[in-house]
Amino acid sequence: MIDRPALADFLRRRREQVRPADVGLRGGSRRRTPGLRREEVAQLAGISTDHYTRLEQARGSAPSASVVAAVARALQCDEDQRDHLFHLVGIEPPRRRGEPHVRPGLIRLAGLLGDVPVILFTDVGEVVWRNPLAAALMTDLPEEPGRARNVIWRWFTDPDGRIAPRDDWERLGAAHVSDLRATHARRAGDPDVSRLVADLLRVSEEFRELWQRHDVAVRRQDRKTFLHPRVGAVELRCEVLVSEAGDVRLLAYFPLEGTDAADRLDLLRVIGTQDLRIDAT
């Protein structure tokens, strides 16, 4: 059963402890209270401000497990704090091995790379954090947590939504599957991996054919072209930093040498950035 008063108190106190700079936001001199604003936590977690506000006011509907995990990431909770948050909501915390946890330090590191698109993925392909430039580059990615933010699921269930040139589809699809194969082998029996693979095998013939090849490779670098509706084709070199446990990846996209990608990113930064930095009023 959800402990609403304790949940509200924990969220409020934790929010006050997180500095805007810790999550890549401007602090500003006109903030009346320390820490983050409610709307900033909501935006970082990918939920509505109203939903988060109700949680801090000890009212409203109980949050789902995916929302609790997203709020814990936004508030930079460590694993113990995250588990406590789950207990307050009345939900069993995820198994630590089966549910990747993004350390606050990794989010802080990602936040320092503001000049290039940066994304944090779990090892099953779910986007758990991205900087404003990455949000502007991947315009088709919704804010709500869950399967809709899983790039592997979206790749094989919504081919029409792919934002890469058709000539790259075969290579990128094979890379998704071989990387997931490595995760499936390393985390054999973990429910989140097993469910994702089973669902993909059920709904995608393309995935089934690639899965049957038994290709295995953790993706550590790549080249990718993003077809953006406003700035056109952006050719990028992707460098992947894998966490020690292998359950979280930091992807940084750098302009490909010999292309105009840097100019296109500069243009995107001006006209298309979804800026999470909210000026005080």
Score class of each variant (00 low, 15 high):
P5A: 05
D9K: 08
L11R: 03
R12L: 01
R13L: 06
R14I: 00
R15L: 01
P20E: 03
V23L: 05
V23A: 08
G24H: 06
G28S: 06
R30G: 04
R31G: 06
R32L: 14
R37W: 08
V41I: 09
A42P: 12
A42G: 12
Q43D: 15
I47P: 08
H51V: 01
R59M: 07
S61E: 13
P63I: 04
A65P: 02
A72N: 02
R73D: 10
L75D: 02
R82H: 03
H84Q: 05
L88M: 01
V89A: 01
L106I: 15
R108P: 07
F121R: 09
E126R: 08
E126P: 11
V128D: 10
N131I: 10
N131D: 15
M138E: 14
T139L: 07
D140K: 04
D140T: 13
E143F: 00
A148S: 13
A148D: 10
N150C: 11
T157Y: 04
D158T: 10
P159D: 09
P165A: 09
W169Y: 14
S178P: 03
S178H: 11
D179R: 09
A182M: 13
H184Y: 14
H184T: 13
R186K: 15
P191I: 12
D192V: 14
L196I: 09
L201N: 08
V203K: 04
E205R: 14
F207P: 11
A217F: 02
V218N: 02
P229Y: 04
R230A: 10
R230V: 09
G232M: 05
V234A: 07
L236T: 08
E239C: 05
V240Y: 06
L241Q: 10
D247N: 12
D247C: 06
L250H: 10
A252S: 15
D260I: 03
A262F: 01
D266Y: 02
L268I: 11
D275Q: 11
L276M: 08
D279V: 04
A280S: 12
